[in-house]
Every structure is written in structure tokens, then in C-alpha cells.
């Protein structure tokens, strides 16, 4: 586990959560498991970080929450992506596509004589 540094991923926590909720409503522990699964077991987002992110996303109107109606073992708190959340996700995805290319250049690119 932890095949990717927390520093690298921090700015993308919200987008990762939105991506998971884009595929259907879910609750804390399930989202936690899905993140591990999506990363192929290479990244674990601590549950505490998740809950903090949920609170932020709720406040910004990107997601909504509601209580499930489980009778066994207590009710779960589910999260649902809002229309605004979907738009934010699409925008973040675009931003990422752009950033990815630039970062690739910045990290790997060499400075050639012509550009001097």
C-alpha cells in the first residue's frame, strides 16, 4: 500500500470522491474500499480524510447526504453527487488533462539549445 505519496494526491481528493459518486450513491466505508480498489491496492485514503472531504463537499453543494433505511446494525449515511458536483468533476478532469501534460514536460523535459 501507499504506492503514491499523499502530497501528490492531496489536491485531488475531492475529484476522486466525485468520480466514485458519479457512478452511484455510496457511504463512507464503501467509498474507502472503492478508492483502494480503483488504485489497484496502491493507495489508501484514510477514512478521517474522507469525512473531512465529505464535510467540505457538502458545504460547497457538490454532494448531498441522506440516511439509509438499514434496519440491521444502524443506518448508513449515504452521499449523492449533485448536478453542480458533476460539473465540478468535468471541469477538474479537464484541468487535470492540461496539468498532466505540463507536469510531464516540467518533470521530464530537457532544455534544448533552440529554446535558450
Amino acid at each position: 500500500m501507499a504506492g503514491i505519496s499523499t502530497d501528490l494526491i492531496r489536491g485531488h481528493t475531492d475529484t476522486i470522491i466525485l468520480n466514485i459518486l458519479r457512478h452511484g450513491d455510496s457511504y463512507g466505508y464503501d467509498i474507502y474500499k472503492k478508492i483502494i480498489e480503483l488504485s489497484g491496492g496502491e493507495y489508501e485514503l484514510k477514512e478521517a480524510t474522507l469525512y473531512t472531504a465529505f464535510r467540505r463537499l457538502l458545504k460547497d453543494g457538490e454532494i448531498e447526504s441522506y440516511w439509509g433505511d438499514e434496519t440491521q446494525g444502524g443506518r448508513r449515511k449515504y452521499y449523492r453527487i449533485t448536478d453542480q458536483g458533476r460539473q465540478t468533476y468535468e471541469q477538474n478532469k479537464k484541468d487535470w488533462e492540461t496539468a498532466k501534460v505540463i507536469l510531464e514536460q516540467l518533470i521530464k523535459g530537457g532544455i534544448t539549445d533552440e529554446s535558450r
Binding site: Y27, Y29, E47, Y51, G73, G74, R75, R76, K77
Partner: peptide, 14 residues
């Protein structure tokens, strides 16, 4: 109260 309920349920499941 709500947060504790949420943590409790998810912890139980884990």
C-alpha cells in the same frame, strides 16, 4: 451526533 452515528456504522462494517 450524526458524525458519531456515521463513524460507528462504518467502523462496525470494517
Amino acid at each position: 451526533f450524526d458524525l458519531k452515528q456515521e463513524l460507528r456504522v462504518n467502523m462496525k462494517e470494517r
